[in-house]
């Protein structure tokens, strides 16, 4: 029922993209996000799509997995599209009746905004699909390392993120189980108005929270018993090393940014 959420789920295969240093991947993802905002015309969007598709192919992650990550967003996407479509001012009117007015400008903006959202989510999903949460956390921890000097808890944050990611599938399974158990007691999660539906969630959420707290307590004890004592003096199984592969990736990204800027400048559509 709830097992088909792929956002933030690692897809464990081997590929050049998987092997990239997580720090580099994080930086490249940020660069990609900047690119998404840099793209100002259709040519840019075509380039972005081509780039995403190519990276996806290179990463051995099925394109379907990437699309599936967009599914939970479909309502927001539709909303973004519609809001922009109806409320963007413009001159070139395509459709007009009653209070509805759709202009060419509005349509283009709606399209751009929803595409932009899709690219952002797909780009970041690609990061999480190809990077194991632990190495992602490692990467983040090192990137944020300099901030430790101003007492920023980089290690703790990274560890929290790892654990959260580790427990997502477990808690999803649990939600499914509790939901079924309450349905067997006659609970109804599907009908009624918004208020009664929110109320119907109580028998689901309370046990889920209790279980999460219990797990947290257990896990804390298990970690302590395995000598966990914060980030100090800790070594890593994965030592991060910048390889030739990483350098190539950076060069490709730089070239891509250049192409995007050029496309925005010189291609007129």
């Amino acid at each position: 029922m709830l097992t088909n959420i792929t956002m933030g789920q690692y897809y464990p295969v081997d590929s050049r993209v998987h092997r990239l240093d997580p720090r580099i991947k994080l930086i490249l993802t940020i660069a990609f996000i900047v690119c998404v905002f840099l793209a100002s015309n259709f040519a840019g969007y075509i380039l972005l799509s081509a780039f995403l598709f190519a990276v996806c192919r290179l990463s051995n992650v099925p394109f379907k997995m990437l699309l599936r990550g967009l599914k939970p967003l479909r309502i927001i996407l539709i909303l973004t599209f519609l809001l922009n479509l109806f409320f963007t001012p413009g001159d070139d009117v395509w459709v007009s009746f009653w209070i509805i007015r759709i202009t060419r400008e509005a349509f283009l903006q709606a399209l751009f905004y929803s595409l932009r959202l899709m690219f952002l989510v797909a780009g970041t999903s690609l990061l999480t699909l190809t990077t194991s949460p632990i190495s992602l956390a490692d990467g983040l921890e090192i990137l944020m390392g300099p901030l430790k000097k101003i007492r920023f808890p980089a290690h703790e944050l990274a560890m929290m993120m790892t654990i959260a990611l580790r427990f997502i599938p477990t808690l999803l399974d649990e939600t499914d189980k509790i939901m079924k158990a309450q349905m067997a007691r006659g609970a109804d999660f599907e009908s009624g108005n918004l208020l009664s539906r929110a109320k119907a969630m109580v028998p689901l959420l309370v046990p889920l929270f209790i279980s999460a707290f219990r797990r947290a307590g257990d896990l804390a004890m298990a970690m302590e018993s395995r000598c966990y004592h914060g980030g100090e003096g800790r070594t890593r199984l994965r030592v991060l090393k910048i390889t030739k592969n990483d350098m190539i990736a950076c060069v490709i990204m730089a070239a891509f940014i250049a192409m995007l800027i050029l496309a925005g400048r010189f291609i007129p559509f």
């Binding site: 189980k177 007691r185 006659g186 209790i210």
Partner: peptide, 28 residues
């Protein structure tokens, strides 16, 4: 058809025992 799942204690959610047991009959 009453169905009791594995580890059913993980589905308890009410403040009191009586209220929790009453959940099913209330839904009826």
């Amino acid at each position: 058809i009453g169905l009791v799942f594995q580890y059913p204690e993980y589905q308890l959610f009410e403040e009191t025992v009586a209220k929790d047991i009453a959940f099913g009959p209330k839904n009826q």
